[in-house]
Design a protein around this nucleic acid. Structure first.
Length: 606
DNA sequence: GACAAGTTGCCCGG
DNA sequence: CCGGGCAACTTGTC
């Protein structure tokens, strides 16, 4: 190496939220130690493998990210790769430190609540083992904890709060990105890298929230270095996930992400005029937004590089006197929203992803509420919910599987399942429909489905957006309700999007494409699809009737929202924690009852 | 206490 | 494509 003799530092670099080489503050810090031995690892945390909901598309996307990173390491140093270890971090890390004579452990800061606890435990173990630990923030524009401090210790609940708080951090400009390293030190010689003689602890697979996606026994934990003892990135077969269901066209990996970004950046008209509310949720091939969110999630794209590359285009256009869209609707604003949700989560901590015990969110008397987990640990495995209404349960299942009978909703839910991605406004449509604008089902049920199916699933952002749409936090104008008919029609009057994802209706006239149940029977026959709940009807295809009258449901939901706002409970209130909230809302939970709190309020007023 | 602002509603009229 | 009515939320500022 040209930088002279290396130190005697042996650095273990732990990849988690940062599957990239470019602009990684943690990787930069690790290499700045000038290590004589450098070992970049991934280790499979059972919390992700079994206790997080991960569908086939995201599994494959993650494996692609790992393969790409491993390949990039090998290109910089033919002895290097991403060393994929199959054991839980808390048990395997101390053994690796010993086996590989590690002096330093380096990783990127993760402010998700589970990760904080895990990393705190790792810090304690490292201290005991005499291993020095370096942790660097690189996942966000601004350190979520620092944003919270600048926001008076409170969760960031609006973009203006974020702008104000970020303004006190380097004038609201994130740090400049680091370059990609030009060389990577060697690992140990092959025989020392070998873990064959190390004790191996196999992760406990129950409960396995992803068992419904496995077609074979999950064997990834049976051999610590993988089936060929070469630390290779696992295959879908090794983890037992059905790869025939991983049909998303969206690809993982740092090189894919950087190519996508540079293509967008070359088009300064697209970057400069981007306004999120004006991008179409019905666009496909190509979509109207960047599709870079999954890369931000896995850290295959640095959010700070994204920021500064966009800023570069905006500065250039400014000099050329071309107009630029502004925060919050422009691309920079989108990245700030991501930081807003991270900082809100960082402030609230573990209860952030649910209502129960969460003081930052409004309590609403949804159907299918999460059951409080008395004395449960933070992990919340298969989160239980109360089926208080068989009707609502059926609506939820039909929503999830794209059989509501509303083509716009069903098209979006089928796109979600197939591709692992839908446009932000499409997420608005289906989230409003499930919660305050249709089914009146708890937002937590919807968030869990998104957690499973989205390739860009980010807990802070997903949960935050569900709170937004359900008007439980961040947003409160519940009288602004998305129509499952009008909203799609506005963006896509001829219904191309519906035809693509609900092929049964492909031949329907555009007059009926959003409301096929209104088409005359003769036309339904002519267009090859009967709109009926009788699956055996006719010879051709069948599409269900709408599962309820939307206008009727909108009114019911709005009345109940008004009532819930009048009651005014929040997730950490006594009445929520002890279950007595039911008395405040009326015991039978009848959708058609009048608002109860209104009356109480009037009495108080007297 | 009034008033404005808040990334992305719908419907109708011009 | 724009504006107002619809019926009406919270937060921040004056």
């Amino acid at each position: 190496m040209k930088s002279g003799s290396a130190s005697n530092k042996v650095v273990l670099y732990w990849h988690r939220t940062d599957l990239r080489l470019h602009d990684s503050p943690a990787l930069h810090a690790a290499l700045a130690l000038n290590p004589s031995v450098f070992i970049p690892i991934w280790t499979w945390d059972p919390h992700y493998v079994y206790r997080s909901r991960v569908g086939p598309n995201r599994w494959r996307f993650l494996l692609e990210c790992q393969s790409d990173l491993s390949h990039s390491y090998s290109q910089l140093n033919s002895k290097q790769k991403l060393w994929v270890v199959r054991e839980a971090p808390l048990t395997v890390l101390p053994k690796l430190w010993k086996q590989w004579d590690i002096t330093h452990l380096v990783f990127e800061k993760d402010t998700d609540s589970y990760a904080r606890d895990r990393d705190d435990a790792v810090l304690r173990l490292a201290h005991e083992a005499g291993v020095e630990v370096i942790v660097k923030m690189g996942r966000n524009l601004f350190d979520p904890d620092e944003l919270v401090r600048k926001n008076g210790g409170k969760p960031t609940m609006s973009i203006s709060q974020v702008e104000k708080a970020a303004g006190q951090i380097n004038h609201a400009q994130p740090d400049q990105p680091w370059d990609t390293p030009k060389s990577i030190p060697h690992p140990w010689e092959q025989d020392k890298m070998d873990l064959g003689s190390m004790e191996h602890e196999i992760a406990e697979p129950t409960p396995d929230l992803n068992s419904n996606h496995r077609i074979a026994k999950d064997t990834q934990y049976s051999l610590i270095m993988g089936p060929k003892n070469d630390f290779a990135v696992p295959t879908m077969e090794e983890i037992g996930i059905d790869s025939s269901l991983a049909i998303s066209p969206h690809r993982g990996g740092e090189s894919v992400a950087l190519t996508m970004l540079s293509n967008y950046i070359q088009d300064d008209e697209y970057i400069g005029t981007f306004e999120k509310p004006k991008t179409s949720p019905a666009a496909f091939e190509p979509q109207s937004t960047t599709l870079l969110s999954p890369h931000l999630h896995f850290g295959t794209l640095s959010v700070r590089k994204f920021w500064w590359d966009v800023q570069g285009d905006l500065n250039k256009r400014k000099q050329e006197k071309k107009p630029n869209a502004t925060i919050p609707t422009n691309l920079l604003g989108q990245l700030l929203f991501r930081d807003m949700y991270f900082a809100a989560q960082a402030a609230v901590g573990e209860p952030f992803s649910r209502t129960y015990g969460n003081k930052a969110v409004r309590f609403i008397d949804w159907h299918l509420q999460s059951e409080p987990q008395q004395g449960a640990d933070n992990v919340l495995p298969a989160r239980a919910y109360e089926i208080d209404s068989a009707e609502a349960e059926e609506w939820f299942q039909r929503w999830k599987t794209g059989r509501t009978g509303f083509p716009w909703i069903d098209a979006l839910m089928r796109q979600l399942k197939q591709e692992g991605w839908i446009h932000h406004l499409g997420r608005h449509s289906v989230a409003c429909f499930l919660t305050r604008g249709g089914c009146y089902v708890s937002w937590e049920r919807g968030a869990e489905v998104f957690e499973e199916l989205l390739i860009d699933h980010e807990t802070a952002c997903n949960v935050g957006n569900w709170m937004w749409l359900s008007c439980t936090a961040f947003f409160s104008q519940f009288y602004r309700c998305y129509s499952p008919v009008a909203f799609g029609k506005k963006w896509d009057p001829s219904g191309e999007f519906v035809r693509r994802y609900v092929p049964e209706l492909a031949r329907f006239d555009k007059k009926f494409i959003y409301e096929p149940w209104k088409a005359p029977i003769a036309d339904q026959k002519k267009w090859g699809c009967r709109v009926t709940n009788d699956d055996s009807a006719g010879d051709g295809q069948v599409y269900p009737k709408p599962m309820f009258d939307f206008d009727e449901r909108r009114q019911v939901c709005m009345d109940r929202m008004k009532n819930a706002y009048d009651v005014g409970l929040h997730g950490a209130d006594e009445q929520v924690l002890n279950g007595s909230w039911r008395q405040l809302f009326g015991e039978d939970g009848d959708d058609h009852q009048g608002p109860k709190a209104k009356k109480q309020k009037t009495l108080e007023g007297d």
